[in-house]
Design a protein around this nucleic acid. Structure first.
Length: 605
DNA sequence: GTGAAGGGCCAC
DNA sequence: AAACGTGGCCCTTCAC
């Protein structure tokens, strides 16, 4: 494929080029960088294309003599020079303009580099990667690389071999520049084909939601989350002491069950090996369940101190391995903060996934959460949706009793207990409330009677009758859940309120496969609508925080954490609460939305 | 040595 | 038999 492109190397040419592209509705957009992490490299090229006319901008020419940090030294970074260079103003204006939509593949990457190194937002984003993920809707092995999409949607082959070439070179080769130009030039055509499928699958609304969320997430990753190293190490030392002691004691208790003690004492058992631990426990005459999972071992812990000790050891071992020194290794030297990787469509339901490290699975205990704190002079604003999934289920099902339980404003699980047991809310016992709570959570996951009975310590028939009573209290909820179960058999799909689609395949001859599909069809619209709401809130928040000290620093499914100047805390609380309530009301119209929000020095409830 | 699978467990 | 949804990370085990 021959394309026309222009290599831009000076301010006058850049101003002219940006003028040419400024009126276009869609622009292919790409960057080439010397590293993968914007804090550790430089942007070499920015490419913009309307499909026929492609501009390749060599930022090295705009960085004075400061360009070239790819050797690793921070002093050579061009960031501050590029940000301050007035010759780049037309590029910043074009990129941040919302008049032309910038089409990029995995736009989070490109927008992060632009945000950090050029100092501006990317105004309107169309992400072909996210679009492709939405279209595949959790089904099939289709890959989502740019070359894969070009092959699938355009039937052409895109050569990506230059992607990993040296973008820090003094002079770029013709092949490198042509590759860079092609990547941007192909985007408008690709978008058209991709969008045909988006329209055909009725995914326009959810794609708009996702595209609008790219910039907020890019900024959140750049912002990072501050962690207090000292506090973290203190906690780690404490737990390590406990672990050493627990390991010694457990080793001693287990070795009593090992048949032959060697001359040098009992052989060492690897306490992290289920196999070895199980053998030792069997040797001690303990009736072992099918697995050594905590919930299976729990009932044995009272009778056998060694089992209790194993559980204690497991707990601290997990803390040290998953939440130990390794977390500190993710602190970026340039910022002193943790910049985790958020995958915007981490699950087919639309939920985020987070890794390196996973900030969505930090233990809830204050000893851990308090390590994530506001730096001096700053404040954290912490907000989460109250019972959002149950409210979404209430909204889907339109069940009158269910909705009234929320409208009453009282403790929701107590309200459920009162309705199920036909008593006054003030007479609900802690046991009854606990029952109701487990039922409320369970139905969201498609809970069955046998699992509920086991969980609540009831016989199967008791479990069944309690579940019957529950569904008799909320008949329309029962009806909605049953309908999801039924319709998935023919539709083989489910959708959230935003129209997010999950294709659901199953083996009709396999009961467990059908059961799993039915549970998923009940859960996906609920979990996924919660994700829709969070994403909408992030966009509203992003626009509302612009120009303030407020920075998005973490999200955990139904929780948003913003860091801001102490002096702006009250204002930030208002903005965050408003964004979350508005987003909730957009998708949930029949049930009140509640947001719990507070300010704190540290991440705690 | 590297990588995949499986068990286990953290979050919502 | 199977058994309530979504992830990621750590460990051991086992194949290459």
């Amino acid at each position: 494929m021959e394309i026309y492109f222009e290599l831009i190397r000076d301010g006058a040419a850049l101003a002219r080029a940006c003028g040419e592209l400024a009126g276009k509705a869609f622009l292919g957009f790409d960057v080439e960088t010397t590293e993968l992490d914007p804090y550790r490299g430089d942007v070499r090229l920015v490419q913009l294309s309307d499909g026929a006319n492609t501009k390749v901008i060599d930022l090295k020419e705009f960085a004075g003599g400061e360009w070239g940090s790819s050797s690793g030294s921070r002093s050579g970074s061009s960031t501050s020079v590029l940000r301050a260079n007035p010759e780049l103003a037309p590029l910043r204006e074009l990129l941040s303009s919302t008049k032309s939509v910038k089409i990029a593949h995995n736009a989070k990457f490109d927008t992060k580099w632009v945000r950090h190194h050029l100092g501006c937002e990317v105004g309107a984003v169309y992400d072909t990667y996210l679009a492709s993920v939405l279209i595949s809707a959790g089904e099939g092995e289709r890959r989502h690389g740019l070359a894969d999409l070009v092959q699938f949607f355009l039937g052409r082959t895109l050569d990506k071999s230059e992607q990993v070439s040296d973008w820090g070179a003094e002079t770029l080769s013709q092949s490198q520049i042509e590759y860079a130009a092609k990547d941007a030039a192909i985007m408008t055509e690709l978008r058209e084909k991709v969008h045909e499928r988006i329209v055909a699958d009725e995914l326009e609304q959810v794609l708009a939601l996702e595209n609008a969320c790219v910039m907020p997430i890019a900024e959140m990753e750049l912002n990072g989350f501050y962690i207090d190293k000292g506090r973290w190490r203190e906690q780690l030392e404490k737990v390590t002491k406990v672990q050493v002691k627990a390991a010694e004691e457990l080793q001693f208790m287990l070795s009593a069950g090992v048949a032959q003690a060697s001359l040098f004492g009992a052989p060492t058992i690897n306490l992290d090996s289920q196999a070895q631990v199980t053998d030792a426990l069997v040797g001690l005459g303990i009736p072992m369940p099918n697995s050594t999972r905590a919930w299976e071992l729990q009932p044995l812990a009272e009778e056998y101190p060694v089992v209790a000790k194993l559980l204690e050891y497991r707990g601290v071992a997990k803390s040290i391995s998953s939440f130990g020194e390794n977390i500190l290794e993710f602190i970026e030297p340039a910022t002193g903060r943790i910049h985790a990787d958020f995958r915007q469509i981490g699950a087919p339901t639309g939920r985020f996934a987070c890794s390196k490290p996973n900030l969505q699975q930090i233990p809830h205990e204050p000893e851990y959460r308090r390590c994530f704190r506001a730096p001096d002079g700053k404040m954290l604003v912490i907000a989460d949706y109250s019972q959002i999934e149950l409210r979404i289920l209430a909204d889907f099902s339109e069940d009158r009793n269910f909705i009234e339980a929320f409208e009453s404003g009282q403790d929701f699980h107590s309200a459920t207990a009162a309705q199920v047991f036909g008593i006054d809310a003030k007479d609900v016992t802690p046991d009854q409330r606990s029952f109701a709570k487990r039922l409320n959570f369970g139905v969201v996951y498609g809970l069955g009677a046998s699992r509920f009975a086991q969980m609540a310590g009831l016989s199967l028939s008791e479990g069944e009758s309690t579940l019957r009573k529950y569904f008799a209290t909320y008949p329309k909820m029962d009806e909605w859940l049953r309908n999801q179960s039924k319709s998935v058999l023919t539709e083989r799909s489910a959708r959230t309120k935003s129209g997010r689609l999950a294709r659901i395949s199953f083996d009709a001859n396999d009961r467990s496969s059908v059961g799993a599909a039915q549970r998923y069809a009940k859960n996906m619209p609920i979990q996924g609508t919660s994700a829709d709401i969070l994403k909408r809130a992030l966009r509203l928040l992003h626009d509302d925080l612009r120009g303030t000290s407020g920075k998005l620093v973490n999200i955990v499914h139904d929780e948003i954490i913003v860091e801001c100047d102490k002096a702006e805390a009250d204002e930030t609380v208002k903005k965050l609460a408003s964004a979350m309530l508005t987003a909730g009301q957009e998708f949930v119209g029949k049930v009140p939305i509640k947001v719990d929000i507070h300010t704190a020095d540290e991440w705690s409830k």
